[in-house]
Structure formats: C-alpha cells, structure tokens
Design a binder for these strands. Structure first.
Length: 886
RNA sequence: GGAACGUUAGCUCAGCUGGGAGAGCAUUCGCUUGACGUGUGAAAGGUCACAGGUUCGAGCCCUGUACGUUCCACCA
C-alpha cells in the first residue's frame, strides 16, 4: 500500500520521530572498514557548561552537511563527537553553585570540590549533546568522548612527559598574565586588548645627592612605581647621557634605583625616561633580565598591594593608585596629568583587567614546535578555506611566545610533577615516585596546578581515536579530513592541534580547515548575554523546525564570512520546506498503486527529458560546489531548481497531460509519473545533507522499500541524461509562455478570458519543434489561457486584428481584435524595436572590432555571431509587425 | 603601529579561473488555475564606494583614496 504524506507540513511532529529512527538504525555509526575510504571530522567539543547557541548551530550544521554528504558518497564517514571539561568555566560555575548552597570551595578542599565538578558534569554535561540531537546531527554518539575521560587523560599525560623529556616543557619564573578575579595565570591568547581612556602621570624622581635635580618619567600605572628597580634612558639620547649610572631616590619609598641605558626606550615618546618595573610589565621584565635588575612584586594575587607596598599595603590596585598620585602631588613630585588612551589587557572570560606578574609557571617552548606547523601550510599539507586565514595563522605562529600551560585551578588535568617534602626536589613522572634520588625522602607532594584546557583539546583529533594506543580506529580514521570551526578560535585551538599533531603523530591532524564566521543579530551586533540579543536555536527549531534553521544558516553565506540572523529568513526557509512538502504530496497523490514501468528515454516527452537533463546539470553543480566547500552556492542551486524549474514549470507541465485518458496519453503519463518520481527522489538526495528531516520523510514515503535516504548513493552526473535538444525546445516553450503572459498582463486581459493562439514559425525546424512540443503537452493551452493553439509555417492571416509576441524562432499571435489598441501596439513594438536595435549595435560593434575577433576565444566570438543573427531575425519580425499598423 | 575583510536593488547578502548584474525579504499590479495564499503570475528598482591603470572586454585583476568592520601589536 502506498504511503501518504501528512496534509500539512509539521516539522515538530516529524523531526524527533525521525531522529529516533536514525539512532535506532545505527546509521550514524562508523567503524573500521577496509572496503571503504574513511572520511573523518572531529567535532569541536562544546563545553560541558555550554548551552547550544547560534555559533554551535552553524558549526554543527556545516559538519553535519559534510558528513551526511560524504556518507552518501560511499565513504565510511565518522563524525567524532565529545565534550570539553572547560577548566575555568566549569570551576567558576561549580564554585558559584556551591556558594549558593553556602559551601565554601576552600573549606571543602580539592578532593571534595572535584567530586562536585564530576557530579555537575554528570548532571549537565549531556545537555548540550541532547541539544545537538535536535539539530539533526549525525555524529557517532556511541563514540562520544570527554577531554577528561580515561583515554584523553592518558594522552595528556603521555604528551606532557614526552614534551618535558625533550625539554619543550619547562617550569620557570617568568612574567605571565594574571587574572586577579579568577586567581590564575592565563595564556596570551586569553588576553583581550581593549583601548581604555586613562591618564599619563608625569612624575619626578629626585637624583640622589643633588638638590633640585630630577628625572621625569611618565607612566599610566603609578602604583607600580613601588616595584621600580631602575629608570631607563636611550643610550643615544644626548639629553640624558650624563645621568646614566647615577642613582635616583624612589619617591614614597626609601629605596634608591639606578639610571640605566637601554635601546628599548623610545626617545620620541613620553619624557624619554622610563620607569622600569620588572615584576609588573612584560617589557620591563625583559629590560630587567638584560640588566640583572631585582624583580620586586608589589601585588597580591587578588591585585591588592602586598607588604612591599609599605603604607599602601592591603589597598586595591586602583585605590593605591589614587593615594599614590595624591601623595606625589603633596610632595610636589607630580608634574602633570595628561589624558591618554591606551590598550589594557583583559581576561576574555571575566573581563577583569589582567595583571602582568612574575610567577613560577609551566611553559611550552614554542619555537621548534611551531616550525612544522608553519611548513604545513607553506607546502600545502594543510589548507584553509577561505585561503585568507592562512595569513592570520602564519602571522600568529611566526610571532608566537612560549605557551603558559599551568593554571591555578583544581578542575583539569593535574601537572605530573612531584616535589620531595624533605629536600624539595622536583620529579616529573607518570605516577608519584617512591623515593627521592637526592635525599632518599619518601614523601611527595604533587604540583597543585592543572593544565590549560586547550592542552587537552590540542590532542583531540587523535586522542579521541585512541592515541597513544595504535588502535585500528586511529590507524584508519586519522588524520582527519576537515576541521570546521569559527575564526575566533584559530589561535586557541587550530594552531595548537596542528603543532601537537605534527609533534605527536608526525602528521597534520587534518587536511583542510573550513572557517566560518559569526552569527550576528539583525543589526550586525555580536549575540551576547549581556546585550540580551541572543537567539536560542532551540526556540527557532520549536517554531520552524531544524531543517528551516539549518537552511537559514547556510543560505547566502560564503565561507569565513559573518552573517546576520533574520526571522524573515527562517520563515523563507520554512516556506521552502512547505513548498517541497506540498509538491511531494501532489506527486504522490498522482502516483499509481502499482509499479511504474521504467521508460526508455526515447519514449519520454520533451518536458520529461528536459527536467532530467536539468537535474543532471544541477547534480554536477551541487557536487562541484560542495567539493569546494561552497555550501551556500550548492544549496542555492538545489533550491532554485526545485522551486523554479521543478515546481513552477515541470509540475505545471506535467499537469497538462494528467487529463488525457487516451492510450497514447496513458503511455505518456507513465513516463511523466516516472520522471516526477525520479527527479523528486534525486532532489531529495541532493537536499538531504542540508535538510535531513523533511527529505527523509519524503524520500521514504516516495520509496516505501527504502529504509532511509541517509545511506542512498549520492547522485552522479551522467552522459545519458544530457538532452540539449529538449532543453532548447523547452526554453522556446518558456519564452512563449512568458511572452503571452506578459502581453496579456499588459493588455489587461482577464485571466478568465481564453483566447486562440497562432504560432507563426520562422522556419521548418521551428515548426517541427513546436508541433512536437505541443503534441506532447496535452492541454497545452492551459498555461497560456488559450482555447486552441494553431501552428502555422511562415505568414498567417491570424495577423489581422492580433497582438503579437515576437520570439527568437517564431511570432505568436493572439487574434482578439478588441484587444488591439493601434496606438498602444505601435508604441510597444517601437519600444521592442529600439531594444533590438541596441542589442544589434552592441553585437555588431564587438564583431567589428578586429582585436575582439582575433583575441577573444573562438567560442565567445561564435556566441556573439549567433546572438547577432537571432537579433537581426527578431528585428525583422518586429518591423513586419509594425508594418501592419501603418 | 601593522594586517585582513567589507563597500553590489529600499534592507540582508550571493556573484566560481574577467565575456551582457542575481536571490531572499520589502514595494506595486493581477490570480480561489485540479499540491502549496507558508501559494502563484507579472512589474518596478543598481553610473557594482571613488579615482587611475592593465585588457578587445573589469563588479571581478593592479595601484591609490574614502568610509566601515574585525584581528594582531610590549610605546612606558
């Protein structure tokens, strides 16, 4: 029994049911299969704290499209999913939730706190995965991983030990970015620079042993002066050479500091004298190293002044600043205050102004590791789509600093370093050592720090496949094919995966990186919690369906570009879904219960062959564009084909034959029904990666024997489905229909008024084609509101009292004398003639240009010649029409 | 201070290796034509930011300018 589609398209009733079906059917699963080529994408692991937002929706839609497409192309397609432990985000969330319960993190201690974190993960970690289900994501959920699961942790440990042994990981006292709110160090990538309005304070430092002799420095951060250990001038600056080597009295303290010479000082800027605070400024830190200056840290971890701050101890950094400025003023040492805008580093998670501080931290030495990652894009092993992102990638890598990987957090992979409680010796090892090789002590304490979240995500493409074990999955699916992600995490993630991949596996972890932009609100603003302008993808799905959301996210968007979100566009997408739903319903209504005989192409009607020929081209275009990751163009092609050509033309043409019950008509009808079903089925396959739910429902209803469209073969272009003659015949028909509709509109002919129509053909070929065409059309007059269509060769008496439509191969007459307004007709025809004359002039001009004829490609020249001939013919016909009215 | 991207119809954006400017939405005028008014037929709307250059030919390539967006950057 034939199945039927529901009367109305209701995505909600559909999508959950079909997703369940897919899960049950196990279609998302991929496994090692020597008979197929693998295709692999690793999902950027969403944070366990995360809620699905538009960025995820876009990112995962793109991955799902590629995965579904490759699966249909016969690849063993693995989309490897998982979640990220999101060190800071989770720690902050759990801490907050504990605080709400009146529990203090510090009091319960590390072990207990971690138990809460794991509980939290158990409770909420799956939430975002369930939300991804609603999008239709065809990831292999059985393989879901977590950055802190056993295997991934093993990978982290292995990598850490390897890098340490190679000397690429070291512990050192260096200046790092410190977040006073989160109380942890962060990497350079996590610092956002924003311009802030501040001041330049000009301060005098008295020269020791002199009355009224000062050095004037300018600073944006007066409070750090308590940690000054020198003032630097440029050695070539004549103004100050006499001061080099002298000693200054550091105001507000009892310390004395030297004047040193260093090239770093810009003579043109400020006063030409720079206060040097090695413990609180990255540049000063370098200067301090060069001159062996003391590093005096004057801040506590929460950015209050410490005991080195003297009377300012305990004050917040900004309060200390105010007091210090006031005190300097009282001492007469403040020269002036000038407004000054400068870049301030803030923590990208909490927005707190970052404090550069000298700390004992763990670092990854980057110079050697960066090399293969740079080489990879230069030799083409790794490519970015769009290509412009290679530049950004390279620029960052070529200027990379060592990566601070230690975090003063509890939630994360703990650093495998142990300290002897007796002598303090540090031992880096997989497990706690038994005895200290130096002192024989047997008690050790593990380093309290954990690793940057990105340390584990850097290993994601191979750790999820079982590495460091040489698992069959790792051997088969690695390296992965394409990584899909937003440009905002190239530095955090993509780069670190690439150098980790080369270092650990000797290969780039993926061949291509497909970069997408941000989904912004309708005014082009970033969607953010604070602005409250975010749109919840789940809300969109509830209202319009996942298919509509997915289509919206890929339509009209080029790789790497930002896009704006409009509800109107979702509506348009839903309308498209509704359109194909109804078209399918109509087709199925007309399909017979029994078999449809597969017709020979020769017995098909021109319209049937035309649409087969057209979809054949669309198949090629869609595939080509998908090969280039131009998903927006690809889906546009399918959309336009289905709506304009298939629904608005082909189905309408098909209807013309449905009424014909003659034996011949029945035979033609079989061919048309077969074609309708064939083309609809192929279209659903093409559209499936983009709109998986509706295409599944339609396809399976259309082909009751099919289990799912997911595993059907991707359509292939075929030489046998090229019918250029039918294409040109149908475009002549379209020219006729459009022409008649236009003129009826222009002449205000009511739709109900049926007229006769005479087509006067220009030559025998045209006459033959039109006869053949109309003979195949059944009720051919329907689309042009004609009672009767007559085909004439050459001139016809129908001209009398007619309005005419001049086409390239014929002129059509509507013999309705009451329509004819002589003046109006002359005006209209004159207008047409003018257009034609212009076109002819253009073509003639080009062809008269010897350089064009000699230099342009022959095909192009030929094309212009053909056009010219056509225009000349049309001009002649129009002139003939005009004659009639003279 | 560098760099990238953008500037195309009223709005939002496509436009592949250069060969007669497109879509969606909005607008105007028609249509209960056997699936769809979430539809259908038609119309109007663009010196492709500006100025040069290359070319037989430029929205597309090159140079510069203006405006906008974003990224990077240790001028205290």
């Amino acid at each position: 029994m034939r199945k039927e589609l529901a009367k109305t398209y209701d995505p909600n009733g559909l999508e959950d049911r079909l997703y369940e079906k897919w899960l049950r059917g196990g279609y998302f699963r991929a496994s090692v299969n020597p008979d197929r080529k693998p295709f692999t994408i690793v999902m950027p692991p969403p944070n366990i704290t995360g809620q699905l937002h538009m960025g995820h929706a876009l990112d995962n839609t793109l991955q799902d499209i590629l995965t579904r497409w490759k699966r249909m192309q016969g690849f063993e397609a693995l989309w490897q999913p998982g979640t990220d432990h999101a060190a800071i985000a989770t720690e902050v969330k759990v801490t907050e939730s504990l605080r709400e319960q009146g529990i203090d993190k510090e009091k319960i201690g590390r072990e207990e706190f971690l138990r809460y974190c794991w509980d939290w993960r158990k409770e909420y970690g799956g939430r975002i995965i369930n939300q991804l289900h609603r999008l239709g994501s065809s990831a292999d959920w059985d393989k879901e991983r977590f950055t802190m699961d056993e295997g991934c942790s093993e990978a982290v440990l292995t990598v850490f030990l390897k890098l340490y042994e190679k000397g690429y990981i070291y512990k050192g006292s260096r200046i790092v970015n410190w977040c006073p709110k989160c109380q942890t160090s962060i990497s350079d990538a996590e610092v956002e620079h924003e311009d802030q309005d501040g001041f330049f304070w000009y301060i005098r430092y008295p020269v020791a042993g002199e009355e009224n002799m000062f050095v004037e420095v300018a600073t944006t951060r007066p409070e750090t002066m308590l940690g000054d250990t020198a003032v630097a001038v440029n050695p070539r600056d004549d103004r100050f050479t006499h001061l080099i080597g002298r000693t200054l009295k550091l105001p507000l303290t009892d310390r004395e500091i030297p004047v040193i010479a260093d090239e770093y000082v810009d003579m043109e800027f400020g006063t030409g004298c720079v206060k040097i605070t090695p413990a609180h400024d990255p540049n000063d830190f370098e200067v301090g190293k060069r001159h062996s200056l003391e590093e005096i840290c004057v801040l506590n971890d929460d950015a209050t002044m410490n005991e080195k701050g003297g009377k300012y101890a305990g004050l917040d950094r900004y309060e200390a600043r105010r007091r210090i400025v006031r005190d300097l003023e009282d001492l007469g040492l403040l020269v002036k205050v000038v407004p000054h805008s400068h870049a301030v580093g803030t923590h990208d998670r909490c927005g707190t102004t970052v404090e550069p501080m000298v700390k004992q931290q763990w670092f990854v030495r980057m110079d050697e590791l960066a090399k293969p990652a740079i080489e990879a894009v230069k030799n083409g092993e790794l490519t970015f789509v769009p290509e412009r992102y290679t530049k950004i990638y390279l620029h960052w890598l070529e200027n990379i600093h060592d990566w601070c990987i230690s975090r003063q957090l509890w939630w994360g992979h703990r650093i495998p370093a142990y300290y002897c409680r007796k002598c303090g010796k540090m031992i880096v090892s997989r497990t706690a050592p038994d005895t200290c090789p130096d002192c024989g002590g047997d008690s050790f304490e593990q380093d309290p720090d954990t690793l940057d979240t990105w340390f584990s995500s850097a290993l994601w493409p191979f750790s999820t496949l079982g590495w460091p074990e040489e698992t069959p999955e790792y051997r088969y699916f690695y390296p992965t094919d394409v990584l899909v992600t937003g440009y905002d995490i190239i530095f955090f993630w993509v780069i670190r995966m690439v150098f980790s991949g080369y270092e650990q596996t000797g290969k780039s972890p993926f061949h291509h990186v497909l970069i997408h932009g941000l989904v912004r609100d309708s005014q082009g603003r970033k969607m953010s919690k604070s602005l409250g302008n975010g749109i919840d993808p789940l809300d969109v799905i509830d209202r319009y369906g996942a298919d509509a959301l997915r289509l919206t996210l890929v339509t009209g968007n080029a790789p790497g570009n930002d896009m704006r979100f409009y509800w109107e566009q979702v509506e348009a997408s839903r309308n498209f879904a509704n359109k194909i739903w109804n078209a399918s319903r109509f087709i199925m209504m007309n399909l017979p219960d029994g078999e449809i005989r597969t017709p020979d192409p020769a017995e098909l009607k021109p319209a049937d062959r035309w649409i087969l020929s057209r979809i054949n081209t669309v198949v090629r275009e869609v595939t080509e564009n998908m090969d280039r990751y131009e998903l927006g163009i690809a889906v546009q092609k399918i959309h336009d084909f289905l709506w304009d050509e298939f629904c608005d033309w082909y189905i309408e043409m098909a209807k013309l034959t449905f009424g014909d019950e003659s034996p011949e008509g029945m035979k033609a009808k079989n061919g048309t029904l077969w074609t309708l079903r064939e083309v609809l089925g192929e279209s659903m396959k093409l559209l499936h990666p983009y709109m998986p739910f509706i295409t599944e429902e339609i396809y399976c209803t259309l082909n009751p024997e099919a289990e799912t469209v997911m595993t059907e073969a991707w359509p292939a272009w075929s030489e046998e489905r090229c019918f250029p003659e039918d294409e040109s015949m149908i475009s002549a028909y379209q020219e006729l229909v459009r022409g008649i509709r236009n003129i009826r509109m222009e002449m205000n002919v009511p739709a109900k008024t049926k007229t006769d129509l005479v087509i006067a053909c220009k030559d025998e070929g045209a006459e033959r084609d039109f006869r053949k065409l109309l003979a195949s059309m059944g009720d051919a007059g329907r689309m042009v509101s004609a009672k009767k269509i007559e085909i004439a060769g050459g001139r016809t008496e129908a001209e009398e009292g007619s309005v005419s439509v001049v086409m390239s191969r014929a002129t059509a007459y509507i013999p309705l004398s009451e329509l004819v307004d002589r003046e109006k007709e002359i005006a209209r025809l004159t207008d047409e003639l003018g257009k034609m004359v212009k076109e002819i002039a253009r073509a003639e001009g080009m062809l008269a240009n010897p350089k064009f004829v000699s230099k342009a490609p022959a095909a192009k020249v030929e094309e212009e010649r053909a056009k010219l001939a056509r225009y000349v013919a049309m001009r002649q016909q129009i002139e003939e029409q005009l004659e009639r009215f003279k």
